[in-house]
Design a binder for these strands. Structure first.
Lengths: 161, 161
DNA sequence: ACAATAATATCAGAGTTCTGACAATGAGCA
DNA sequence: TGCTCATTGTCAGAACTCTGATATTATTGT
């Protein structure tokens, strides 16, 4: 680079570094982490949202797509899309719900359970990386901030000043 | 707990609260914040990435789409898509670059500049919300964590210590 | 000067996420 | 009973983001 003395800030400095806007840093952090997760999950074919959905399904079985959407703070449409992709991949199965015509019961298939086991190992390794270099108290601060930053997002119109 | 004592965790507790996985909390925080930003930007018609792109374009003019992708830690394809949408909305203009046949110079239009002014006011209000309730030192911790969490995401294989 | 490499931009395809709109079921009320 | 409303699920459309592939231009090496 010889001409025009690059005014591009180096990575990790300026607005991009620890002096940047929190919202900007938040978006980049989530992007970067999702990228690492999906690179790590490549061999399983899962995406980060699919992994999250399978994990919830395993932890809270017998629940509908709308239930899971509420847990994950997503819209029902979004969760529906994820479920369709998981069903196409034969990782889940959906049956009509007895005593409730519209609801559908969701179940992991054997393939789904096997993939989930492998995926959990991969993702939990990255999870520990996220905490590395931060004390217990600092991690508490970070968790508290993350919950506050994303907490009340789909809560209807609770804009009550 | 008569028939099926709701095992759904309440919002803000369990894996969703301050005891949850950092990766999970990070995804939800970014989702929630983006949601708030776009709700706030509704009147301008901008999305969060479009706002970020316009801001960078304003701060570092005369740069190509690929340059901006590098700054924002996105792939060139992603930034290209955003630029196309901004161009369709007549918020930016692209001219052929002199002395560089392939590059294209990007410029905010008058409409783009006007929208950006309004959008900055709206977004910066939310930005201060993100810091509310956290001391200066806690904010430093959070920033440091966010940078570490998303930092080295697109660095091909540049393991250069 | 020519060939190889790198950078820029784009197309195609997929997955996630939103809004908006709609149909079908279940529950409550006049 | 019939009407209304909330819940559940889906379709359509848009934007963002990635990977992979391709074309064009610049730079570099021999």
């Amino acid at each position: 680079m010889s001409k025009a003395a690059k005014v591009l800030p180096d990575e990790g400095t300026g607005k991009r570094g620890p002096d940047g806007y929190l919202g900007y840093l938040l978006r980049q952090a989530a992007n970067g982490y999702r990228h690492r997760v999906e690179t790590s999950l490549r061999e399983t074919g899962l995406t980060q949202p699919q992994f999250a959905a399978l994990t919830m399904l395993d932890a809270y079985p017998e629940h509908s797509s709308a239930d899971l959407a509420r847990i994950a703070l997503l819209t029902p449409q979004t969760m529906s899309t994820i479920m369709q992709n998981l069903e196409n991949a034969a990782l889940i199965r959906r049956h009509p719900h007895q005593e409730h015509g519209r609801k559908r019961r969701i179940e992991l298939t054997d393939a789904g359970r096997q993939v989930l086991v492998r995926a959990k190992r991969l993702v939990y390794a990255l999870e520990t990386d996220l905490a590395e270099g931060f004390s217990e108290e600092e991690q508490r601060t970070v968790r508290r901030w993350l919950v506050a930053a994303g907490g009340r997002s789909l809560e209807g119109g609770a804009a009550k000043p």
